[in-house]
Amino acid sequence: MLKIKNLAARIGGNQVLKGIDLEVKPGEIHTIMGPNGSGKSTLGKVLAGHPAYEVTAGEVYFNGKNLLELTADERARAGIFLGFQNPIEVPGVSNSQFLRLAYNKNAEANGQDELDPLEFDDFIQGKLKLVKMDSDFMDRGLNEGFSGGERKRNEILQMSVLEPKLAILDELDSGLDIDALKVLGEAVMALKRPDRALLVITHFPRILETIKPDYIHVLYSGKFVLHGGSELALELEAKGYDWIQAENQSGRR
């Protein structure tokens, strides 16, 4: 589904990604872990097509398409979803207005029927339940005045509406209390499908208790330095990232 070869990218004069290789197949859950500043969010944004990030080398293929040739919205309509680490607020644009427009743009691209406001209102109810979000939030501005946790709920709500093929979830756990973390973790698992892959970016291993990964990749200074299965999470939980840092600085660089 997703094939990344030797991907390098920079932002604001910083060479942040320095050669990433990764292959993700349908139905798989991959986790990217790593210390702060290692480039995790950058990888997410580069895959989602943020125009401010410059790809300096490498290739990315998504279901056979050269992803790097597509704009952010084309990637989204092709089935890539990025759940933001820090979703921004867009005052004045109502959540329902935005979500319905997003739904309809994707429906149009995939040859499905668009929904009018009433139909969409029906459609969204079940999704709101999934993330335990009050329907009042639909009438508010997009993330306007939302707490960190409410924004994260809204991200997963968007994911459930857009039904992506590949969901990249960047630090879903940041800003969430334990209960909310469980709700959203379970919501994501409920959205798991054989034809849907997840790329879960996280600094802390806790969320992996609910969203159990098939593979864990450890990013350090723009490169993967360690690959493993879900057992790697326990090791990182116990040891932290310092030893990776130490190992990479001392020897193999």
Binding site: L82, F84, V90, L101, A102
Partner: peptide
């Protein structure tokens, strides 16, 4: 630019994203 990207990352083409921000 970040607001535009956020909207585009949900499948809104540039023009629709711009218009939605204008509405906002």
């Amino acid at each position: 630019a970040d607001e535009l990207f956020y909207l585009q990352s949900r499948g809104l083409d540039l023009n629709s994203a711009r218009n939605l921000l204008l509405v906002g």
